[in-house]
Amino acid sequence: MKKIIIVEFPSNLGLKEPHPGKEPGVKNLPEWLRQHNLHKALNPESVLRLEAPDYTNFRDPETQILNTDSLVAYAVKQSQLINSVLTKDQFPFILGGDCSILLGSAIALRQKGNYGLFYLDGHTDFMDISLSETGGVGGMAASIVTGNGHKKLTDILDLCPYIKEENLWCAGNREYDDEYEDEIRKSKATYLSLKELRERGITECVQLFLAAIENLDGFWLHIDVDVLNDLIMPCVDSRTPDGLTYDEFNELTFILFKSNKLAGLEITILDPDLDLTGKYTATFVENITAVFNKARQL
């Protein structure tokens, strides 16, 4: 069994300000999860941390994206750290941060081989910059890592694409808007909206994914907590009605967690500033650690 290494990437570089002069609070997520016993429950071999560059609300004039240069510099350092973990045949359990931390993960995977990506999120994050009102990479992360967008972000270290588009499975979106969804529909990625995920059956969908990536070097799991139902996970930056129940979330993640093709995972978007009592965080930690530990014991 691979040793677990918790890796902390406390970055908010991919999000807009919630209001003028206020930084997004997701940069405090790793410490917040520690306070709610995630680290204790996972009992990792070690905990590694890479501080993010300072946040600004500055849009790069060349890309029209927030914090472009900082994101690129951070992604390179992230990839080096993840690469060292993977080289030792350890399991990186990554705590963000916003969804832009995927860039570092994807670069590391590209350096290791040919990997799939299961993108579990309440949004597709497959948006073109032309549709973005904020310029935040958080809403474009899945698109960028599969080679869509400005070269400054899609071709870091001359590795474009980090994940082949056909090896991306995007599951859980409930932002039902044709213009928004058409971006991923016209791609080579597999798109499973929340509606389709339920209609086809969660277990069947996940098994189809595992069959599809069987001949790859492995796969990565991205978990944006806003994939969960808004009633049980309201402490996110972009709230949307509906979402997975914990029963559905646990069914889905359990199958992925027990796969020997899973190279690592990352958790993003839970904002401690929006869960002052820790009520929602505590429940999330209880669920994900119980399912993860159970899957690893098989």
Rank of each mutant, 00 (worst) to 15 (best):
F126C: 11
L81I: 13
D125K: 05
I101L: 13
G136W: 04
L109Y: 11
G104H: 09
F126G: 12
Y119S: 05
V72D: 01
K112A: 13
Q64N: 15
Y115H: 13
D60P: 09
L81M: 14
I101T: 08
G135K: 06
E62N: 14
V145R: 02
F93R: 08
P92N: 09
L117H: 14
S79E: 08
G135N: 08
L66E: 09
G122P: 13
A73S: 14
D125A: 06
S84K: 13
I144H: 04
I82N: 05
F126W: 14
A75Q: 10
H123P: 08
Q64G: 10
T146L: 00
I129H: 05
V85R: 04
H123I: 03
R110E: 07
I65L: 14
G104R: 10
F91Q: 06
N114A: 08
V137P: 07
S100G: 13
L81T: 12
I107Y: 04
I144A: 03
E133Q: 15
N67D: 09
I144F: 02
A108H: 05
L86W: 06
E133L: 14
L95Y: 00
G104I: 06
D60S: 08
S132P: 11
D121A: 08
L102I: 13
T87R: 07
T124V: 12
M127P: 06
R110D: 03
M140R: 00
Q64A: 12
G122V: 10
Q78D: 06
A108W: 00
Q78R: 07
D125S: 07
